[in-house]
Amino acid sequence: MRLGIQVSNFTWPGAPQSTGRTFRRIAVDAEQSGLASLWVMDHFFQIPIAGEPEDDMLEGWSALAFAAGATERIELGTLVTGVTYRHPGVLIKTATTLDVLSGGRAYLGIGAAWNEQEHKGLGVPYPPLKERFERLEDTLRLAHQMWQDDQSAFSGRHFALERPLNHPQPVSRPHPKILIGGMGERKTLRLVAQYADACNIFEMPVPAIKAKLDILQEHCDSLGRDYAEIEKTTLGLGSFSNSGARGSQSVEQALDRFGRLAEIGVDHAILSLAKPDDPASFELLPELAAAAARIVPAGR
Results as ranks from 00 to 15, higher is better:
Leu108Phe: 10
Ala211Ser: 11
Ile215Ala: 04
Leu122Met: 14
Leu129Trp: 02
Tyr227Asp: 01
Pro88Val: 08
Leu271Asn: 06
Ala67Arg: 06
Pro176Ile: 00
Pro176Tyr: 05
Gly247Ser: 04
Trp39Glu: 03
Val7Leu: 09
Phe133Gln: 01
Pro128Tyr: 11
Leu216Thr: 04
Val83Tyr: 10
Ala196Gln: 11
Arg132Trp: 08
Gly4Thr: 12
Glu116Gly: 02
Gln17Asn: 07
Asp278Gly: 02
Phe154His: 04
Gly69Gln: 14
Ala293Trp: 05
Ala291Ile: 09
Pro16Val: 06
Asn9Ile: 06
Leu91Thr: 11
Leu38Pro: 13
Ser152Glu: 13
Arg86Phe: 10
Gly89Trp: 15
Trp39Ile: 03
Ala160Glu: 15
Leu35Tyr: 13
Leu64Phe: 00
Lys130Asp: 12
Asp278Leu: 08
Thr19Ile: 14
His175Ser: 13
Glu116Cys: 02
Phe23Gly: 00
Ser18Ile: 06
Tyr85Thr: 05
Ala112Gln: 12
Ala50His: 11
Ala269Gly: 09
Glu31Gln: 14
Leu237Thr: 13
Leu76Gln: 02
Leu136Tyr: 12
Leu91Ile: 06
Pro16Asp: 07
Glu229Lys: 09
Arg73Trp: 04
Leu271Ile: 04
Met183Arg: 12
Ile92Pro: 06
Arg86Thr: 13
Met146Ser: 07
Ser250Arg: 14
Leu189Val: 06
Glu203Asp: 15
Gln194Val: 00
Phe66Val: 05
Ala245Asn: 11
Asp99Asn: 09
Phe10Met: 03
Gly77Gln: 13
Arg86Ile: 12
Leu64Gln: 03
Gly103Glu: 13
Glu185Asp: 14
His175Pro: 06
Val28Asp: 05
Asp42Pro: 15
Met183Lys: 11
Ala280Val: 12
Glu131Ser: 07
Lys210Thr: 01
Gly60Asn: 11
Gly224Met: 12
Asn9Tyr: 15
Met183Asn: 07
Ala245Pro: 01
Lys212Gln: 10
Ile209Ala: 01
Ser281Leu: 08
His175Gly: 09
Leu285Ser: 04
Glu75Phe: 03
Val40Thr: 14
Ala68Met: 09
Gly60Tyr: 08
Ala208Lys: 14
Ala106Ser: 15
Pro174Met: 13
Gly109Ser: 04
Trp39Gly: 02
Ile270Ser: 13
Phe159Gln: 01
Gly109Phe: 05
Leu165Lys: 12
Val83Phe: 05
Arg105Thr: 03
Phe159Gly: 00
Gly14Ile: 10
Ala30Met: 06
Pro276Met: 06
Arg135Pro: 07
Arg257Glu: 07
Ala262Pro: 14
Ile5Met: 09
Ala274Pro: 00
